[in-house]
Computed example of a mutant assay.
Amino acid sequence: MKRVFFLLLSVMVLSACSREEKKVENDFPLHMKVGNFEGINQDGETFSFSKLKGKVWVADFMFTNCDTVCSPMTANMAELQRQLADEDVDAQLVSFSIDPENDQPGVLKEYASGVGADFSNWDLVTGYKQEFIESFANKSFMAAAAKMEGSNQFVHSTSFYLVDEKGIVVQKYEGVSEPPYEQIVNDIKSIQ
């Protein structure tokens, strides 16, 4: 009897120890692998998928001539950046322009500067072909991105996307109207 008791006690202690050491996996609803990309950022520097290797990042799609959702989305991304800084959470922010012909580096820099962007961890990316960004958004993020026929406007996703260190999109959030900043910050903390 004594032997059975010690055996059970040992099993409980060992299983408790192994639970504490094992990293808890999150139950995120998405699992989409981001494909390779290469462009230039707001400073005219090469920016590619390889620069994000090993980093947690939040992405969105926007364009500077947008007459609807892009201004609030960009302001909301700036607010997310401030909240991440307040919480001392290290994450990269990446805004992909879906209008690379118009959105040259200087245009992107001026646009984001208008909302107080800190470019130390926020890159606005352009410098690829229109066909590429439309396909990239669709395949990597399952997001729409297309020029509206007969217009200078584009159809695109209004979500913020959380991407883990392995380049997997794990979650998406409302980006225009009342983004869940606290949830985004906590989700980033949980996967770092």
Rank of each mutant, 00 (worst) to 15 (best):
164 D>H: 09
183 Q>M: 06
74 T>Q: 00
51 K>L: 08
10 S>Q: 10
81 Q>D: 06
49 F>W: 15
6 F>R: 13
40 I>S: 07
80 L>R: 04
189 K>T: 15
135 S>L: 05
16 A>Q: 05
47 F>R: 03
10 S>E: 10
166 K>A: 09
140 S>I: 06
31 H>S: 13
91 A>W: 02
90 D>T: 11
81 Q>F: 02
85 A>Q: 13
188 I>E: 04
17 C>D: 06
106 G>Y: 06
21 E>H: 08
130 Q>Y: 10
143 A>M: 09
23 K>D: 08
78 A>Y: 12
39 G>D: 07
68 T>E: 05
20 E>T: 03
128 Y>E: 06
29 P>H: 05
89 V>H: 03
15 S>R: 08
21 E>G: 13
44 G>P: 09
192 Q>M: 10
9 L>C: 06
175 G>P: 02
62 M>E: 13
145 A>E: 07
24 V>S: 05
81 Q>M: 03
164 D>G: 11
121 N>I: 00
97 S>R: 09
7 L>Y: 07
169 V>S: 03
81 Q>K: 01
119 F>I: 01
158 T>Y: 04
179 P>F: 07
38 E>L: 13
28 F>I: 13
46 T>K: 14
32 M>K: 12
22 K>N: 09
137 A>C: 15
82 R>V: 06
133 I>A: 03
21 E>V: 10
94 V>N: 11
98 I>F: 10
99 D>S: 03
121 N>F: 03
108 L>R: 03
125 V>W: 00
178 E>L: 04
82 R>I: 03
23 K>F: 05
11 V>L: 14
34 V>W: 00
60 D>R: 02
176 V>H: 08
24 V>H: 02
44 G>Y: 01
76 N>R: 08
170 V>K: 04
192 Q>Y: 10
43 D>F: 13
105 P>I: 07
26 N>C: 15
164 D>M: 13
47 F>V: 00
64 T>Q: 02
28 F>N: 05
123 D>L: 00
86 D>W: 05
61 F>S: 04
12 M>C: 10
72 P>L: 14
174 E>S: 12
75 A>E: 13
32 M>E: 14
126 T>N: 00
94 V>F: 03
122 W>P: 09
109 K>N: 04
123 D>Y: 01
160 F>L: 14
123 D>P: 00
187 D>Y: 10
130 Q>M: 12
28 F>K: 04
20 E>R: 04
173 Y>K: 06
20 E>K: 02
100 P>D: 10
119 F>Y: 06
183 Q>T: 11
63 F>R: 00
22 K>T: 14
20 E>G: 00
159 S>F: 07
91 A>G: 01
137 A>Y: 09
177 S>V: 11
140 S>F: 06
76 N>G: 11
6 F>M: 13
59 A>L: 09
7 L>M: 12
96 F>Q: 01
112 A>M: 07
61 F>E: 03
1 M>N: 14
14 L>G: 06
102 N>I: 02
60 D>F: 00
111 Y>K: 01
29 P>M: 09
175 G>Y: 02
183 Q>G: 04
